[in-house]
């Protein structure tokens, strides 16, 4: 049956619909149901298990904020670990940083990477071929349990917590990440849209509180992650890293000579200011 509409199935009482101009690709891999279609407004759209993961037109909001905020805050990131993020958009932003010497990306589903290269070439823009990049096809939770290498920045680019992404929201997983963070290291996580799923922010806050000296969340409003601002989790041992003065960020940003479309040092500073209801939910 020809489908001309995609209705996201995240919530029973509310949702977004996309006109499908064309189905580009569809498969049921061992771990998930992948659908890629074209929409006039958002370009190509990738959905996993009925939930939008990324689109060509708005992906930069999310990828720039998940990558550049910890990388510029760190100052000298050399070793970066990405868990998930099969589409390569996050990787593209990470390899823009000249200080980065090594990026490992752990992806559970090899098919997602292959499909992203084919259908979302602008997400990775050649980053998969960067000599600093290593791809590991494995369960992210298993990888962090077994790696002994120290990491300056760990980025958790997970899918919705229902499905294979579930373990990436567990206390044990965060504990392992904390174990492998280098001194001055930062972990950032995808943490859902608090207006829709406040429980998830609450749960992560509880886990971070027990494990990290400094933790918080910062916001970005991605058009296709519906329900308003989404929160990204922030956890580190160094409380100074999220208090950096604007001038420091501006200087780092200028000397990095990185082109961005969403990220600015001012947005970076402001992103840690959270709505009152989110502060209350996380006990701050």
């Amino acid at each position: 049956m020809a489908r001309n509409e995609f209705a996201e199935t995240l919530y029973d009482s509310y949702g977004q619909r996309f006109a499908i101009d064309e189905v580009c690709f569809e498969s049921r891999t061992e771990v998930q149901h992948l659908l890629i279609f074209h929409n006039a407004k958002f370009g190509r759209v990738m959905a996993l298990d009925g939930v939008v993961q990324t689109t060509q037109r708005d992906e930069f909001y999310y990828h720039e904020m998940l990558a550049h905020v910890p990388l510029f805050a760190h100052g000298q990131p050399r070793r970066v670990l990405i868990i998930g993020g099969g589409d390569g958009g996050l990787l593209r932003e990470v390899v823009k940083h000249r200080s980065v010497e090594h990026v490992t990306k752990v992806e559970i589903d090899a098919a997602v990477v292959e499909m992203a290269k084919t259908w979302f070439p602008d997400h990775s823009r050649g980053a998969f071929d960067d000599p600093r990049f290593h791809l590991v096809i494995a369960d992210g939770a298993e990888f962090v349990r077994t790696t002994e290498d120290p990491w300056d920045v760990i980025m958790i680019d997970s899918t919705d917590p229902i499905g294979p992404g579930e373990v990436l929201f567990s206390n044990d997983f965060y504990r392992q990440c904390q174990r492998i963070l280098a001194p001055g290291g930062i972990m950032v996580t995808q943490n859902g849209v608090p207006f829709m799923q406040l429980d998830e922010v609450r749960k992560s806050a509880r886990a971070f509180r027990d494990l990290f000296a400094d933790w918080h969340f910062y916001g970005v409003a991605v058009p296709t992650y519906i329900g308003g601002m989404m929160t990204l989790g922030w956890a580190t041992e160094d409380a100074g890293l999220r208090q950096l003065p604007l001038e420091v960020l501006e200087e780092r940003f200028a000397s990095a000579e990185i082109d961005t479309r969403y990220y600015t040092p001012a947005i970076h500073r402001g992103a840690f200011a959270l709505p009152r209801f989110v502060e209350e939910a996380i006990g701050k």
Partner: peptide, 9 residues
């Protein structure tokens, strides 16, 4: 979870 992943809510 299986039904939710399928998209039944």
């Amino acid at each position: 979870r299986t039904a939710l992943r399928y998209g039944c809510t």
